[in-house]
Design a binder for these strands. Structure first.
Lengths: 115, 115
DNA sequence: AATTTTAATCGTAATATTGCGATCAAAAGA
DNA sequence: TCTTTTGATCGCAATATTACGATTAAAATT
């Protein structure tokens, strides 16, 4: 298999998972942190910053771009990357919403009280 | 390869990525949401709830347990799962911290203003 | 026009993930 | 003790991810 059964989950659950998955690699965390700190940068700056090859960095950038967290604007020879404020805001709101959920007290079966 | 070069990133970056990765699958989002809503449940309840086999659900539970988001306490024949408040709090604080980072204005190269 | 710079893409290899059925181990109940 | 219930684990197959070097394409420079 290796194939996630996305059709059996809600769109919201799939979207949440997609955002979380995009952040689920230290290199992509580092890229996002760098762009949050520096506003905008070209790919080469990130290649200098990260312990990864140019092609690998480019691939991570592609994933973050595809999920909507980054934008990449062509600037002559180079490509200027930055946080996509729209996508980033959506990711923040969705993930923050999940993380801020209070732990409910509803029991799934009446007399089960363990944790 | 297929092997993440964790040693070249900070412990914080790796921990953040591990939490995000654990949430990077719709089934695990669904499990966390279910446990947030129901406080505590046995594995069989989740198997009834999710469109996945028992072994697959068990595997997802294992991943969430390993990263510290869930706890599983043996209760006779069954296992009672619940949110691990400590781990969940840490995940919330770390991820919320990243998501709440204001977008900085520092330019990585003086005359580059694109996005 | 030829060269250089920049970054995307291709091809490949190693490893991880997802999912399932089957089996196993432990506790509870008959 | 034998059976049932519960859920972890094993083994397998399909697919995805991670990483790199090599190549390619496009714009800028010479």
């Amino acid at each position: 298999m290796g194939l996630t059964k996305t059709e059996n989950f809600t769109g919201r659950q799939n979207q949440l998972a997609a955002f979380a998955k995009a952040l689920g690699h230290p290199a992509r965390i580092a890229i996002v942190e760098y762009l949050l700190a520096h506003n905008s940068c070209i790919c080469g700056d990130l290649v200098d910053e990260l312990p990864l090859s140019q092609s690998t960095v480019s691939q991570h950038l592609k994933e973050l771009k595809q999920v909507g967290i980054l934008r990449g604007d062509i600037e002559g020879v180079s490509v200027c990357y930055c946080i996509d404020e729209q996508g980033w805001t959506q990711a923040r709101e969705m993930l923050t919403g999940l993380l801020a959920t209070p732990i409910g007290n509803a029991e799934c079966r009446p007399s089960t009280s363990c944790c």
